[in-house]
Design a protein around this nucleic acid. Structure first.
Lengths: 198, 198
DNA sequence: TTCAAATACAGAGGTGTACTGTATTTTAAT
DNA sequence: ATTAAAATACAGTACACCTCTGTATTTGAA
């Protein structure tokens, strides 16, 4: 309980404010312009910092973008997602997909598979994996509850859901209400055997 | 039915060879590097032509890429696709998706929705629309034949199929056999009520 | 005094335009 | 018919401008 718990290294410490500004600028630009179109120069400019400052923290654009992606929701949402069934899961998806920024972000990540596969990988590892596991659980619970046929192929259902999200991202306008998204997802899952209990 | 139906304009006619070289180079670069990363300079260089020659034909990159997309399969495949049912339709999709170049092309188009929506639109108008109509027909025929439940939501099924294609493009390696692709699509459609007749 | 941050630099690549010289074709005059 | 003129296409070059890259050097805060 004293001041010098960890002996501070000599010299001027890095500004945490700059740290955050750089990551925020990188994330914004990733969403606005995409990975390939984002340059260190732009990130530095938006963060109110010079290029050298960015280069001191990150060896290159990819490392910077990866950390920017990992910084999303870093603060809150550390716990686990747990859906009791398909309905709640779709509610969450619909809510998420009704926020234009989220939609653009996902599109940018998917769009970067060819040129920057590390980005989608980083996203999957930091967010997607948890979500995918929770989806499996929710699907299994719904099946047990009789909302799906007993022989339902959960893997196929998950693929259908993933494809539906992608398709919706590409074909629907970004200004869409959560209700509309949910209606879309429900329609597809109904055709795939989902029978929600009233 | 003679040679000089349309009186040729004066001056040196444009080299058809150059026309083709420019479009081919543009298409190649679109697939290899993506729309945003493709420059007129690169197209000209690959076509063995100077920039001025490209600018004489096209006002800008977008117009060039659109025409390059429209030039695909311009020669053959002018007629209509007609599938007797889901099975044949999936055969064709699987064949198409087993060619790496086709996969990259579709990914590049989807990846460009935010920055160059005209490209996907051009693709839909020149190829996709026909295909989508044929899909509807194939699905309807299969339903009549009892391969789908009588109350099947054809629209939902088409969305599921579209989503499955997108998802496969993003999550599977490009070196995939037609058989594997078909197995994937069949698994998803089976979960969506498809029961192929033996 | 030590490291963070700003400044400066050299190089690469792209853009759109303009101008040269040459090749190819039509049109008009002889 | 032959020939000259006009029109157009293409390669090549240059321009002025911009953006980005990565590093080297200097300034200044802790």
């Amino acid at each position: 309980m004293s001041t010098t718990r960890v002996p501070r290294p000599p010299g001027r410490p890095r500004s945490q404010q700059v740290d955050e500004a750089v990551l925020a600028a990188a994330l914004d630009l990733l969403i606005e312009r995409g990975a390939s179109e984002t340059s260190i120069e732009q990130v530095a400019q938006r963060a109110g910092v010079t290029r050298a400052t960015v280069y001191r923290r990150f060896p290159g654009k990819t490392a910077l973008l990866i950390q920017a992606i990992e910084s999303v929701h870093q603060d809150h949402d550390p716990g686990a997602i747990d859906w009791p069934g398909i309905a709640r899961m779709l509610d969450d998806w619909a809510l998420y997909l009704s926020v234009p920024r989220n939609r653009r972000m996902l599109r940018r990540l998917y769009a970067a598979v060819d040129d920057h596969p590390e980005l989608l990988r980083a996203y999957r590892e930091s967010h997607g994996a948890r979500r995918a596991a929770a989806e499996r659980t929710a699907l299994a619970r719904s099946r047990e509850r009789g909302e799906l046929p007993p022989d339902a192929d959960l893997d196929a259902l998950q693929q259908i859901l993933g494809g539906a999200v992608l398709h919706h991202l590409g074909a629907w306008p970004d200004e869409v209400s959560a209700g509309e998204v949910k209606a879309y997802l429900v329609a597809l899952l109904r055709q795939a055997g989902y029978r929600p209990q009233e």
